[in-house]
Simulated scan of single mutants.
Amino acid sequence: MEYFLLALVSSNALVIYLFVVKQKAFFFTLFIALFAIADCSEFLYDFFPSEISYYLFGNSLFILAYNALLIEVCKDMSLAVVIKKFKYHILVLFLLTIYGVASLDEVIGEDEGLFFYFELLYNTSALVLLFASLIAYFYHENKKSFFLFIGILFLIIQEIVAIGFLFVSETIWLNVIWILVTTVAFYFLISQARISYRPKDFIF
């Protein structure tokens, strides 16, 4: 049931985005489309020859979606300016990424083989996206980048809640939080997509 509701949230977000947002960014469109397809792939489980092929297919789409959104986050920033202004921020966030990935892998419990490396890639992609969106907010300091960061923050929170639900305890309240946080994430992500970049446009 939880997968049906998650697929409903992401697919509705895609439809709303396509109809509401007039100026669509290619990589953001790619992100939201891949994310919705990955969520809906749950309904194709019986068509996969094995559980591992289903796992690789769905999670590959999520990784591609996160990397598409990462490109969208970074495309309007100058690498030279980022390194010059935020080198200490990047160092701290790099260390936090390592710690976060290690912590998530410990909760998941995969310590060898294909699943371990795939989860490592998945978790790294998610946390790099989060910290890149924070740097992007520091860089632009406007409403669009703020909404983008908040949307991605909730997107990563729903990943953490999902790990808790799938690997720790399948309780109903975690399921509800998972769906609500995902809904909030897409609200902010679609809201930012409707805003054009305006340098130093204050967040309120």
Rank of each mutant, 00 (worst) to 15 (best):
G100S: 13
S133C: 05
L166A: 14
D111I: 15
N123E: 14
F35A: 15
V82P: 04
F202G: 13
Y197G: 05
F19H: 08
G100C: 03
Y139K: 04
G109N: 06
F27E: 05
L114T: 12
F116D: 10
N67V: 07
N67F: 09
F149E: 04
T171N: 06
L18Q: 11
V20N: 15
A33E: 07
E106F: 12
G164I: 01
F26T: 12
Y66C: 10
A136N: 15
Y122F: 14
Y122I: 05
Q158T: 14
E2V: 13
Q192E: 07
V128F: 09
L95P: 10
A36L: 07
E170C: 00
Y187F: 07
Y55R: 14
D46H: 15
L95H: 07
V9W: 01
L64H: 01
A68H: 04
F31G: 08
T124F: 11
A25V: 14
V81Y: 03
F26I: 12
L148I: 06
E119R: 13
V20R: 11
K200H: 14
S133A: 12
I152G: 03
Y99H: 13
I52N: 12
F116I: 12
L6G: 06
I90M: 09
A25L: 13
K144Q: 09
F28C: 06
K24H: 07
A102Y: 15
T97N: 09
M1T: 09
L5V: 06
V21G: 03
F62G: 03
A193F: 00
F138M: 11
F4T: 06
I108F: 04
A68G: 05
A38C: 08
S11M: 08
F149S: 02
L30P: 12
W173L: 06
Y55G: 07
I177D: 01
T97H: 05
F62C: 04
Y3T: 06
F146G: 06
I157W: 07
F131I: 05
K22C: 05
L120K: 09
V73S: 00
F149I: 04
L91V: 09
L44M: 13
V101A: 08
V176P: 01
K24Y: 04
Y117V: 08
E110I: 14
Y197W: 12
L91T: 08
I195C: 01
A126P: 07
A25C: 13
I71M: 05
L104G: 13
F26D: 07
L129E: 04
I37A: 14
L44P: 12
F202R: 15
S53H: 13
I150K: 08
L180D: 00
F138C: 07
I156H: 04
I90G: 05
L189W: 00
S60M: 05
Y122Q: 03
S169L: 10
G164V: 02
I32L: 02
I32F: 00
L120E: 11
I179W: 02
L127S: 06
M77W: 03
A36D: 08
V73M: 00
S53D: 15
I157G: 02
F186E: 00
F43D: 02
K84M: 08
L148E: 14
V81I: 08
L18P: 11
